[in-house]
């Protein structure tokens, strides 16, 4: 009776299972609790700071009063700049890996390198961006240097998203299109890409959320401690939300007095991430329904 089918052994078995499942359930929901605590804490403390003035004015009185408008504009510039770089190259790169590359050592090499790039810590991107864009290319601390650094950081994410989305498309669609006389590019552009589009766009939105919160890569490539003036060209420095949160919560003339500003900044950052996630989830559901209806 190795599986113990006597009634008492059976009860014991059941009891063990119930205890184990209870523990798993408890631990899983403690993960949710952690998220709720972090989000709740910052949202509750932050909401009282949010006002039109906070969102539309520059910081004053050594970062203890005023708002975060220049940082919002700066982060916006960086997100747009990095995505202008990462989206086209990343999507084309994903198309290359999944549609065009033949199964050769080169494809394996490209995949390996993309994987490695994804594993490189963000601070190393910061070092690299400083060495290449700021010094070697002579861009100085600028939106251009910061955007390119952030773009490189986002590249593996965009590539992987595209790749996954393309992989999910059944091969019969490609074969069907090719059989009708379409070329490879026509097939990719008219058949494969439109079908993969929902998944690609969802991934892109999530990567925007990531990029807007990155701090380490912009430390030495673009971020300014205090710069109330808005940028006028891509060679200007800007303030940025994550860097602003870092400096006002760790350094500065009066950390305690700027705490409220810090809660407000953290609130805005969280809201950006929440919006990106909600939008991505909504799109996923929206397109999911549409596919079903077809």
């Amino acid at each position: 009776m190795s599986f113990g089918n006597t009634p008492s052994a059976h009860r014991k078995k059941r009891l063990t299972q119930n205890i184990a499942f209870f523990i798993f359930r408890l631990l899983s929901f403690s993960v949710v609790a952690i998220l709720v605590v972090i989000l709740g804490f910052i949202l509750v403390r932050g909401i009282s700071v949010i006002s039109w003035e906070f969102l539309s004015e520059a910081p004053r009185e050594g970062m203890t009063e005023g708002g975060i408008f220049p940082a919002i504009v700066g982060t916006l510039c960086l997100v747009v700049g990095s995505m202008l770089f990462a989206f086209p190259i990343g999507i084309l790169s994903g198309i290359y890996i999944n549609e065009y590359a033949k199964d050769s050592w080169f494809k394996r090499f490209v995949k390996l390198m993309t994987n490695n790039l994804a594993g490189i810590p963000s601070i190393v991107f910061g070092l690299f961006g400083m060495a290449l864009f700021v010094h070697q290319f002579g861009f100085g601390d600028s939106i251009l240097a910061g955007s390119l650094t952030l773009g490189l950081l986002a590249l593996p994410v965009v590539i992987r998203t595209t790749e996954e989305a393309l992989k999910a498309i059944d091969n019969s669609f490609r074969i069907g299109s090719l059989a009708l006389g379409a070329t490879k590019w026509q097939t990719t552009r008219r058949v494969v890409l439109p079908m993969a589009f929902p998944n690609i766009i969802t991934g892109l939105i999530l990567s925007i959320g990531r990029v807007s919160g990155e701090t380490a890569p912009i430390l030495f490539t673009v971020a300014a401690y205090f710069l109330p003036k808005l940028p006028s060209s891509v060679f200007d420095q800007v303030m940025a939300l994550p860097y602003h949160l870092y400096v006002i919560s760790t350094s500065g003339t009066n950390i305690e007095a700027s705490r409220a500003m810090a809660y407000g900044t953290a609130f805005v950052l969280i809201v950006i991430v929440l919006l990106a996630n909600l939008l991505a989830n909504w799109l996923r559901r929206y397109f999911g329904k549409k596919v079903k209806m077809n």
């Binding site: 993960v31 952690i34 998220l35 972090i38 989000l39 804490f41 910052i42 999530l206 959320g209 990531r210 807007s212 919160g213 990155e214 701090t215 380490a216 994550p242 860097y243 949160l245 870092y246 919560s249 810090a262 953290a266 950052l269 969280i270 991430v273 929440l274 990106a276 996630n277």
Partner: peptide
């Protein structure tokens, strides 16, 4: 869990 991954590290640091 996806949201947990999306929160910026500087916000974790602040928390």
């Amino acid at each position: 869990i996806e949201l947990l991954a999306g929160i910026p590290s500087v916000v974790y640091g602040f928390f």
